[in-house]
């Protein structure tokens, strides 16, 4: 039996969640929090901004943050299932 196989066997039998998976989930949650905070900030700035050029840049940032939040949530759900 390979070392990795043995370790996986021990983790399964003791029902211990993999540290790696736990770390990934924690980091992803932190990143999602930061992105959500950023989205709120961008939205606030967007409401205040009058300059067309700056508004376009902020709108673009808002779109990008939203896509990342969506992708991040999907990945988090995937990790939770595994």
């Amino acid at each position: 039996m390979g070392v990795k196989k043995f370790i996986n066997g021990v983790i399964d039998s003791l029902k211990i969640e993999s540290f790696e998976l736990k770390g990934k989930k924690k980091s992803l949650k932190t990143l999602l929090c930061k992105l959500k905070k950023r989205r709120v900030e961008v939205l606030k700035e967007l409401k205040k901004e009058d300059d067309e050029k700056k508004r376009a840049a902020l709108k673009e940032e808002y779109e990008l943050v939203s896509i990342h939040i969506k992708n991040g949530k999907e990945k988090l759900n995937e990790l939770k299932k595994s």
């Binding site: 770390g23 990934k24 980091s27 992803l28 990143l31 990945k75 995937e78 990790l79």
Partner: peptide, 8 residues
Amino acid sequence: DLRAVEQD
């Protein structure tokens, strides 16, 4: 830890 999820 984000290394593996960053691609997604």
